[in-house]
Every structure is written in C-alpha cells, then in structure tokens.
Design a protein around this nucleic acid. Sequence first.
DNA 1: AAAAATCGATGATTTAAATCATCGATACAA
DNA 2: TTGTATCGATGATTTAAATCATCGATTTTT
Lengths: 228, 228
Amino acid sequence: MEQFSLIQQLNYFDSFAQLLSAEEVSRLESSSNRVEYNRRDFIVKQNTRSSHIPFILKGLVKISREMRKDKTIILRIEKPSTFVGLSSVFSNETFDFSAIALESTAVLFIDSQVFRSIVEQNSAFAFEIIQRLSRRNIFNVGRLTSLLYKQLPGRVADIILYFSEEIYNSNTFSFPLTRQELAELAGTTKESLIRTLSEFKNDKIIDLDKNVLTISSQNIIKTLSRLG
Amino acid sequence: MEQFSLIQQLNYFDSFAQLLSAEEVSRLESSSNRVEYNRRDFIVKQNTRSSHIPFILKGLVKISREMRKDKTIILRIEKPSTFVGLSSVFSNETFDFSAIALESTAVLFIDSQVFRSIVEQNSAFAFEIIQRLSRRNIFNVGRLTSLLYKQLPGRVADIILYFSEEIYNSNTFSFPLTRQELAELAGTTKESLIRTLSEFKNDKIIDLDKNVLTISSQNIIKTLSRLG
DNA sequence: AAAAATCGATGATTTAAATCATCGATACAA
DNA sequence: TTGTATCGATGATTTAAATCATCGATTTTT
C-alpha cells in the first residue's frame, strides 16, 4: 500500500488541515490508519461502535439504514473530504447507519477519542465541524421531508438532479447504484422506480441506456422536482 | 415585563452558562432580548433571516415546515433550554422552518453574530453546541426515516410515545396540538389520524377524551411502534 | 351578536403505489 | 461449470391511505 503522511492526505483533499497545529496533526496521524475498499465493501456496519471516525479520501460511499429485514433507506452518497458519522461520534456510541463503498475507495479512520479531544481544545476546528454538522443536518431534513410529501415522479426527478448536480456536475452520468438501490434512495420499490424511469424515457425527458442517464429536458425534470 | 439578568436566566434552565466567561456572558447579555409569546404566536417564520437565534426559556414550541400550500410537516416539539435553528445559524442565512408557541412561552433572542463569535473562540462551548447539533441530527433522521417506512398505526403509536416519553414523562397527558397538527406530526391527514386514534380507543389500547390521552396498554403501543 | 372558519368525527370513493407474478439476462457462488 | 441469486423489466392485482363529502360543535373574526 502507498504511504502518505496524514498532512499530505488532508492537504490534498481539504482546507481544514491548516486549522490544526503540528502537534494536533501528529496526534491525529499516530491514531489513524488508511484502508482501501472495493465496490460493495462495508466501511461501517450499522450498530457497530463508533470508536473510529471514517474520513473519505477517495471514492464514493452510500450511507444507508436498514430499517428492518427487507427495508433499507439510502440516506445519501458521500464524496471525498467528508467525515462520515460525525453525529454518531459526538452523541451515540454506535453508528446508526452503514457505509458501503460504491467504487474503489480510500478511507482514513481516525480514533474518535483523539478526534473529540482535538475538537474540544481547538475552537477553529470545532467551528468547521459545526458547519459541517449544520449543513448535513439541513440536507438530511430537506431530503427526507421531500421524500415524505412528494410523489413518485417528483422523488425520481429529485434523485436524477441529485446525481447530476451534487455528485457528478454533469447532465450525463452513470448511476453508481442498481435499480434496487435507486429505489432505496427514492423511498420506493424497485418496480416503481423502474416504471417511473421508463416513463421519463418514453416521454423523452431523459435518455437512459443501462446505467447511463442523460437529462434531455432539464426544465421538465426541475418542474417535476419542484411540484412534487 | 419582568427583568432577569441573562446569567440568571441561563443558570435557571441550563448547565452551559458555566462554560462561558463573564466577558462572554456580558456580550451575550447586551445582544439579547427576551420576548413572551401566547399560544399560536409565531416565534420564527420560515424563510426569514437567521439574524437572531431563539433560546427557549419557558413553554412548548412546535417546529414545522410548510412544504407547499396545504402541506405542512411538524418536525418536532421543543422544550425549554433548547436553541432553535442552530443549523440555520451556522450554515444558512435563513430559517428553513417556522417555530410556533403551543402555550405561554418565553424566548431569549441572541444575536447570531455574537453567538457565532463566542462559539468560534470558546471551544468548550463549541463542544456543547456540537453535541446538541449531533443529538438533534440523529433525532431528525430517526424520526423522519420512521415516518418513511412505517405505516399509519406505527406512526400514530410513535407520536403517542413521543408525547408520553419525551415531552410529558407520563402515561396520561393532554395533546397540545389539534388533530390537524397531530396529523402533520404523524405524516398523514387529519381524517386518517382521527380514524387511527379511534381504532386505538375501540381496541382499548388508549383512552381518549377530547385532548386527554391515557395509554392503557403500553405494551401494544410499543409493539405497534416497533413493528411499524 | 352574527358570520365565517376551523375542529372533530364518520362514511363513501378514488388513487397512487405496493405487492405479486413471471421472465430473460447477468452475475456470483458452489 | 453449473446451479443459485440478483438484476432489470413488464403486466396484473391488491391495498393502505388520501380524497371527497357531510355535519354538528367550537372558535375565531368581523
């Protein structure tokens, strides 16, 4: 495995390394370890102890909750430069979600206690964490309340826009998820998700070939998303 | 209006005042104002600027989102000693919810910039805020995902347990909400909510007279909540 | 004090989406 | 390499809950 110093890794992906002192960096460094994952590997398993907090260095990760046997909700897709499960580390002792690699992914696991102690003594870093927690919370509430009141076409339009605008910044992209997983992201069933995508395709709102989707009418997609 | 010093108010309701220095307390004090509300008064209106952050001193407050004309979701009920809208203050410029008094309520409005600057310089206080944000985030995700996958009886059982265990700590309590509002909390319609409560009553799971509810079978309510 | 709006309640009807069933094509495991 | 499971897709059927309608009782507004 390649060797990177922690500060190199952090600098490469992030701006917050400069919030940390050399002493803090070395404490983080000596309590962290880098792990590589392949598609479908579990990075975090729901209900395990949050003794380490994952920081995504590279790759794409789905965050999901198994509500019961045969009922999973995908909360969001995480990109590099994110701490996964900040809330859990600061309030629970366990992770209330699973994190699963969607592609070749590198993760830095940071000891929770060391992480917390640095947050506790470094208020600039704490402020950065507060902002991340706040944005995440607003995203979660926004997305989940949308799932609650919108009906299917609006929810499917939402996930198309999510990948287009927030994950890939492109009108054409390849879904990193199966239809089953897309359904779990849109809060519906595989069959309903497939049907809705087919309707969008028939109506020439999108073009879809296997996993490659192209938005043909941004306008209509946005309207569907807005009207719910 | 009664006069309290800020530190008196904070000490009375909370433990975190001791995290603040005398200088910080006086800065907070000189940038805050206390306001009293009656039932149904707006404390915060959705989409207004988050220039001040409300801290509940007394009373009960519903936090709701108007998703569109005729579709409102009640996110939670807040009790004294809570900051309302922390996430908004640290990431948005506006509140993405409304806060409405459910009873006679007192609120301390703290200037957001002063509040942020104290968080930025006082890491112990920042840590307290992080923990509050984390707990709130976990609560939000837990509740909203429950609404997403449980069906009606489970969701109604949930709100009964919410009032019983988290708001009133009693098996008997009086709903501070109308049936319409209970529906908005359970993610359903007024009619469906009323029907479900009636069924619970017929099945002797609860006793209900006007707004006064008594849980007759904690067991069944918990089972309904668990199985969804 | 009268009028209008909301509230709680119940019954009838509609509807969106889940479930069930099937099937060929991949992908995965024994 | 052969069996087993998951995947994508489509059609038929069921169902939970929304919508619509009505109504008497309260509340709120004028």
